[in-house]
Structure formats: C-alpha cells, structure tokens
Amino acid sequence: MALTLRKREPVAPHEDHGFFGPDSVTWRVWSYPTSLTVGFQRAVVIEELDPALVAAVDATKDIRYRPRTRYDRTLRYFALVAFGSTRATSKAADVLVKVHSKAIGTEPLSGNRYDANDPHSQLWIHLTAWHSILYAYERYGPGRLSPQDEARYWEECAIAAELQTCDPADVPRSREGIREYFAQMRPRLAGSEVAQSTMDHLLNAEVMLAPTPRVLAPARWVVNKVLRVATIATMPHWMRKMAGLRQPRALDVLVRPLMRLSFATVHLSRRLELLALGLLSPATVPVVAPILLGVAPERPETLTPAEARERYGYERPAEAHRAWRAKQRARVFERGEAPSDAGLLESEAVLGSMAAAGPPVATGD
C-alpha cells in the first residue's frame, strides 16, 4: 500500500532493497539529515581541488548555466547508490559512463589530458563523497561510529565503488587508510583561481535551492549562510588555505551545537526531512522517501553489483561503452570538435531533466 508525502504524491516502493538494505551502516548514516546537506555540499566543494576534475567542470560551465539541475541530478545519483533498487541504480551507473564520456579535454595548467571516467578521478570523487558524508554525520549528527560499524561502512563503500570505473580494491577499509589516501592526494591538489571560484560558487546553497515563496526569502538567506559556515567548519585548515576560504575559529565552534540541534530536530519528523530535501534536490525525494517512510520494497532482497550486472545485462563500468568513449575521444582530440551530449540526453530519464538556460548541445555521433 503506497504511502503519500502529500495527498496527491504517492510514494512508490522500490523494486528491492538495493545493494545495502535496512541493516546496513550506509542506510543509517546516509539517511540522517546531515548527509545529503552538509555532507554532500562538502563533497562537491572539496573535489574541485583536483585540477583534472575542475577543468572538466569549468569546460562545461554547467554549474554556472544550470547549477540547480546539475546539483539535483548529482545528488539523485548518489542517493540511488545508497538507497535505490538494484535495477534503477545499475541503469544509472551505466548511463553515467556515457555522461562522463563527454568530460574529456586538456587540463590547462599541466597540459595533460583529463577524462572523467579515469579510475583515479572516479576514486577521488567516490572517496570524497563517502568520507564527507561520514564526517558530517559524526560532527553534526549522532557522533562517531563504533569500530565495528566503521569497518562495515568502508566495506560498503568498496561495494559502491563497483558502480564506478574505479577499482574497489583501491578503496581503503579504515579511517587510517582514508587519511593516508588524502595525504597521498594532497600534493596533487591545487587551489587554482578556477578551483577557488568554483568552490565559492558551490558553497552558495542559494543557487541550488528550489524556488520558494518570497515570504521565505529571509529563511533561505539564513539557511544558505549557516550551511556555508557549517561546511567550511568541516574542512581542515590546509584545505581552506588552498581554497582561499577564511572563517573565524569562533564560527567553527559555535556552528556545531547549532547544527547538531537543528538536525536532531528535523530528524524527529521524516516528512520534515523530506520537505527539507525537496528544497535542495526535488529529484532525490522519490529515491529517499520509501526509506524514510518505511515503504517496503516489492522484493525484500539485496544484490551485489556483480549479481545485478548479470541479472540486468550491464557491463562493468570500467569496460562499458568503450566504442562510444572512443568516438568521443576522436571528436575532441583528433577532430577538435565538441563532444556529443547524447549521453546527457539519454540520462534525463534516469537522473532527471537538465531543463535550464545553457549553451546549445552537440548531439551528433
């Protein structure tokens, strides 16, 4: 029997429990309101310090032309990985390879080529997201996981990595391993002018929030400012310096009890959580609503990514759409043309519409 968020908005059950299920640490951490707010904002901000990634982002200008739809679609994808059915998530992972096939080019600082499907780039995005989600949960939510639960969390992180082009074997399985990974990445990061500008832009939640009545404008302003302070407060000082971000230590201290109380209050009502999520990412609500509202799936089973690929007929992401990716490289590196947006257009049925002002798209093959 379908539950409803509003009388005319039925909450459809997922086909199954996805890759993790109700007993997983992933569901516990990712379903807390810290995760898809501060946690996710932290992830998309920090990842811009990777020169290759920010070059791809800057080349498309999507976060400038259509920041709301870009944020909405990205958040929906990560929510699908955590909560979606195995069929829907496998489809999203497959189409994302085609989407990323257009994010190729030459990084202006080094002159090296970049490719969003590169395993190292995908690992950076993946670990930044899973680490940020956990860090926000610990800082502004219930607190630190037990050693056993943290070990399970990183094992589940490795499972999720199978949905991207990176190698799950490269995913650290402990807090110490994550620290070592970021220490190894630090010399490769750069606070370029483009990176700093992009990070500052993404810290402005106002460009991400869905439209609201004018009477709520003051509340939007407050939410935006508090989210910015809370997100910066989670960043180490070396990273803030690299990003050109300054914030008084007093704000770091004061925002923590405020956010803990705010998130704990919101968490008292699942419908209030969904209402808040709807302001950030309307496309993510149908993915998360069955989990928060306790809507049982059609089949109470979980699968591994390998089992899902075999059942639904998908290739491993690292091997998927090789011919298409080769065509994209030929367009960009051999003929000097813009990459095709056909993968983006195909993804709309899976990740949500891209309808927003922006430059013309290239659709040829």
Results as ranks from 00 to 15, higher is better:
L245G: 07
A276C: 14
V54R: 07
V207D: 07
L216W: 07
V222R: 11
T34N: 03
S85D: 11
E307S: 06
I125E: 00
R246I: 04
A205T: 02
V54S: 04
H237N: 13
I104V: 15
R325K: 11
Q41G: 00
F83Q: 03
E150L: 12
E15N: 09
A151K: 03
W27M: 07
T231K: 04
A283E: 02
R73A: 00
R68W: 05
F20S: 01
F333R: 03
S281D: 04
A56Y: 06
F19I: 04
S174T: 15
I46C: 09
R249H: 04
C157G: 04
R28N: 06
G244M: 11
E319D: 15
D50L: 02
A205Q: 08
R335P: 06
E348N: 09
A190Y: 08
Q122G: 11
V97D: 09
P33S: 00
D58H: 08
M199K: 06
Y65A: 12
D94R: 02
L261Q: 14
V266L: 15
P211N: 07
L49N: 10
A326I: 03
Q184V: 01
L277W: 00
Y114I: 03
W154M: 02
I63G: 03
A161Q: 04
A355D: 13
E334D: 15
V81A: 09
E107V: 07
R316Y: 07
L274K: 10
L251Y: 10
D58A: 12
P33R: 11
H237G: 10
H17N: 14
L258K: 02
D200Y: 04
L49D: 09
A59C: 01
K241L: 11
H131M: 13
V223L: 15
D170L: 15
E346D: 08
L123P: 07
R6Q: 14
R28M: 14
S174K: 13
G18H: 02
P22W: 08
H237F: 13
L203S: 02
P218V: 10
L351H: 02
I178Y: 07
A195Q: 05
T37Q: 11
I232F: 08
A88S: 12
L272K: 01
A161G: 03
A356M: 14
T165M: 11
L268E: 13
P257H: 05
Q164H: 15
A195W: 02
W154Q: 09
L227N: 13
S121Q: 05
I104H: 02
E155H: 12
N112A: 13
V97A: 06
V350S: 05
